[in-house]
């Protein structure tokens, strides 16, 4: 079986669909009538020049922004207005463009916080600790240790993340999102500011996450090489409008995209 047919077999039904999203801040239209979908098991890239509305789109999906018009459908259900933590409970995790780790906490605690939505013991048992709370803590610790192994960050387990170098912090942030065991992972520029080696590592993690855990991934990225290699489908935004949507090859040959983004030779 060829590689592409193999991929196609893994991609399932539509998981998340945004329909005619319009988002404006006062007079500024950040997004205008944007519609696209994300299918189960795929890696979906959102690209566009700076200020195109990519991060706003992610913020709409994760419940930070509430669009003036349009609908978000997740797992076949229309989503009402939701708070971010409710979105997290539905199984959507994300990372941020600027690292948003809990700087005073250790790597381990950051990852354990990622499991917040799965932990259930009430305050009383937590106060007593012995019994259900400790048992739950140890169960989740074991799951988190798998992620620590997966990302190869054993050595920094107990280090406060504020002390870690940038590349490592990005990795821990990915780990925290993974710890949530979300169905849909939103990555906002996971490779920004990294050197080549770190980028390669991060690409490997993204592919492995998708492959091993079957997690659906939507990512924003500026490195075209990365985007074209990793993603199954790409949606291109510019000035809050959708320019193109399709496989990397289709997008690469789309004239509007070439004009707006990839650069055009004026001769």
């Amino acid at each position: 079986m060829s590689a592409s047919a193999d991929r196609a077999a893994k991609i399932g039904d539509t998981m998340l669909e945004v329909k005619d999203i319009t988002l404006s801040f006062g007079g500024v239209k950040a997004l205008t009538d944007i519609s696209f979908d994300i299918k189960e098991g795929e890696i979906r890239a959102i690209i566009g020049p700076n200020g195109a509305g990519k991060s706003s789109m992610l913020n709409v999906i994760s419940g930070f922004y509430h669009p003036q018009q349009g609908e978000v459908w997740f797992n076949g259900k229309k989503r009402g207005p939701m708070k971010p933590y409710q979105v997290a409970r539905q199984g959507i995790a994300r990372t941020f463009q600027n690292i948003a780790l809990f700087k005073g906490m250790s790597t381990l605690d950051n990852l354990m916080t990622g499991r917040m939505t799965q932990m259930k013991t009430n305050l009383f048992w937590q106060a007593i600790w012995k019994g259900p709370a400790e048992k739950e803590e140890l169960e989740h610790r074991e799951r988190v240790e798998h992620i620590i192994d997966f990302l190869g960050i054993q050595a920094i387990r107990k280090t406060p993340v504020g002390r870690l170098p940038y590349g490592m912090q990005k990795r821990v942030e990915l780990g925290r999102a993974l710890a949530a065991e979300a169905k849909l992972l939103l990555l906002d520029e996971p490779m920004a500011g990294m050197n080549l080696e770190e980028k390669e590592d991060m690409c490997r993690f993204v592919l492995d996450v998708n492959d091993e855990f079957g997690t659906t991934i939507a990512l924003i990225e500026h490195d075209m090489g990365v985007v074209m290699d990793l993603s199954d489908r790409v949606v291109v935004l510019d000035y809050g409008q959708k320019l193109a949507d399709g496989t990397p090859d289709e997008v690469r040959s789309n004239q509007a995209v070439i004009d707006a983004y990839l650069g055009v030779s004026h001769d």
């Binding site: 994760s62 930070f64 708070k83 971010p84 933590y85 979105v87 997290a88 409970r89 995790a93 994300r94 941020f96 948003a100 780790l101 809990f102 700087k103 005073g104 906490m105 605690d109 354990m112 916080t113 990622g114 917040m116 939505t117 932990m119 013991t121 305050l123 937590q126 106060a127 007593i128 600790w129 709370a133 803590e137 925290r176 999102a177 949530a180």
Partner: peptide, 30 residues
């Protein structure tokens, strides 16, 4: 009791709010 609360889920939700409230919310801390 304070030690137990601060080392478990509740304590981590507090520290998450302290360190980065936006990220805390996105990770599922109300």
């Amino acid at each position: 009791v304070a030690r137990n609360l601060t080392r478990g889920r509740t304590g981590r939700s507090w520290m998450a709010i302290r360190d980065m409230d936006i990220a805390a919310e996105i990770i599922g801390v109300p």
